[in-house]
Simulated scan of single mutants.
Amino acid sequence: MKKLALLLCFPGLLFAQKKVGGPCECCEAIYQGMPKSISWETHISDKTEEGEPMEITGIIYQQDGKTPAPNVILYVYHTDARGKYSRGAGEECAKRNGKLRGWMKTDNMGRYKFVSIRPASYPNDNIPAHIHPVIKEPNKNEYYIDEYRFEGDKFLRKEDIARDENRGGSGIIKLIKNDKGIWIGKRDIILGKNIPNY
Rank of each mutant, 00 (worst) to 15 (best):
Y144R: 15
E50S: 12
W40M: 09
D64K: 01
E52Q: 14
T42C: 02
I189T: 00
H132W: 05
G83S: 05
Y198S: 15
D153C: 01
K174T: 10
I44D: 02
R82V: 09
A81Y: 04
G168R: 08
K19L: 11
Y143G: 00
D46C: 04
A162P: 06
S39L: 08
A129E: 07
T57G: 09
F114I: 01
L100D: 00
A120N: 14
C24F: 08
Y75F: 15
G169T: 08
L7S: 09
F10T: 13
Y112Q: 04
V20W: 04
R101G: 02
P119T: 12
S39R: 10
Y61G: 02
N166H: 10
N71K: 15
R111H: 14
L7I: 11
P53S: 04
I172K: 12
W40N: 13
D146F: 00
A81I: 05
E28C: 07
V72R: 05
K154P: 08
Y61F: 14
R157T: 11
G88L: 00
E25N: 12
E159M: 11
E159I: 14
K113Q: 10
I60Y: 03
G181F: 01
I195Y: 01
N178E: 10
L191K: 00
N124R: 15
K113M: 12
R149Q: 08
K84L: 15
I30P: 04
G181D: 10
K105P: 05
S86M: 10
W183I: 02
I135Y: 01
N97S: 14
E28M: 06
Y77Q: 12
R149G: 06
P119F: 03
S170N: 09
I131M: 08
F155A: 04
G110E: 00
Y75D: 04
K2W: 11
D160E: 13
Q17Y: 13
Y112H: 03
N126P: 06
I117Q: 02
K36W: 08
G152Y: 06
E159C: 09
I73S: 04
P196G: 06
L74T: 00
F155Y: 12
I182K: 08
K99R: 15
M34L: 07
K36L: 12
I117E: 05
D164F: 13
I131H: 01
I184Q: 14
L4R: 13
G192H: 02
A5S: 10
L4E: 14
I59V: 15
D80V: 07
Q63E: 15
M34R: 09
I161S: 09
N124F: 14
Y31P: 05
K105I: 05
R157L: 11
N108D: 15
G51M: 04
P35R: 09
S116Y: 00
I176T: 13
K174Q: 09
E147F: 13
K66H: 11
C27G: 06
Q17W: 15
S37T: 11
G33M: 04
N71S: 12
K84G: 07
G168W: 03
Q17T: 11
I135S: 02
D153P: 00
I73N: 03
D160Y: 13
R101F: 08
G21A: 03
F155Q: 00
K186C: 08
G90L: 01
